[in-house]
Amino acid sequence: MAYTLQLTVKKIEHETDTIKKFTFTSDEIPLPPFGAGAHVTLHLPMGKRQYSLVNNPLEMKNEYVIAVKKISDHNGGSGYLHECIGQGDNISVSPPDNFFPLRTEAKHHVFFAAGIGITPFVSMMAYLKTIGRSFELHYAASGERECAFHRHIQNHFRSKSTFYFMKREEKIAKLKKALQNRTMGTHIYLCGPPAFMDILLEHSHKLRYPEKFIHEEQFQPAVLIENPQPFFVNLVKTKKTFMVSSGQTLLDALHEIDIYVPYTCRMGVCGTCEVEIEEGDVVHCDSFLTEEEKVGNMLTCVSRGIGHIKLRL
């Protein structure tokens, strides 16, 4: 969605020495509902930053709550939030989106988190507890002091949670063991730093778990071309050559020379304006085509050629 919400910082709490919890609200508008695993996008001076919501979707009281670990100085998003944002400040927020939904068909949900990767699971566990579904958490952190939501988890999900504060080697061995002997109906969710994810993903392959039962957050950053360049297009079937100017889409340029390519959304999501590429490099900006399809196809409403391309039109 293109619109943004103007929210107020209602509360800032220290979760650990380096992690702060921010609560946003509005007195004027009802905040859109969201699902477990959803995130919001904050519009900060240094750009857009996405953070998972940690509140229970079923108990949302016109508030969005996020937890942010400080990993930069005030020039970066997290440092800015930690150092420059205070209670009562206003902030622009895009409504929630969700690239990490719970698979509600699961009989049992197993969460593996490391560090600040715990955030989407805080929301998921609260939701599952409310609707009475089965889950367990495996949570690695460098120590109890650094462990965000440690007390919250102990208070609410103690019997379902295992913490891993030991040395790295031992931690890995134990996490791998926790992944083993899983049964049909289980869905596994991973969130943490890349190294953590890689180890567990690799181990799940080794255990021959089908990928469809293993979930990680699939952020799909919209590729926005900041500074679009003109490019040339050859149509090999109709034998036409033309230029797409920097302010024009390929779709519009095609229509201008009376090559009718059907279209609908003009946002790179519906797939209607797909054409086949004969030759040349393309910057794909859509969220529709698969990686394989991108090799020979492009959506003309958002994607652009580089230099000179040939299309099968």
Binding site: N181, R182, T183, M184, L207, R208, Y209, F213
Partner: peptide, 9 residues
């Protein structure tokens, strides 16, 4: 019979 079969069965 179907209960607790290994994940991926």
């Amino acid at each position: 019979i179907l209960k607790d079969k290994p994940l991926g069965t």
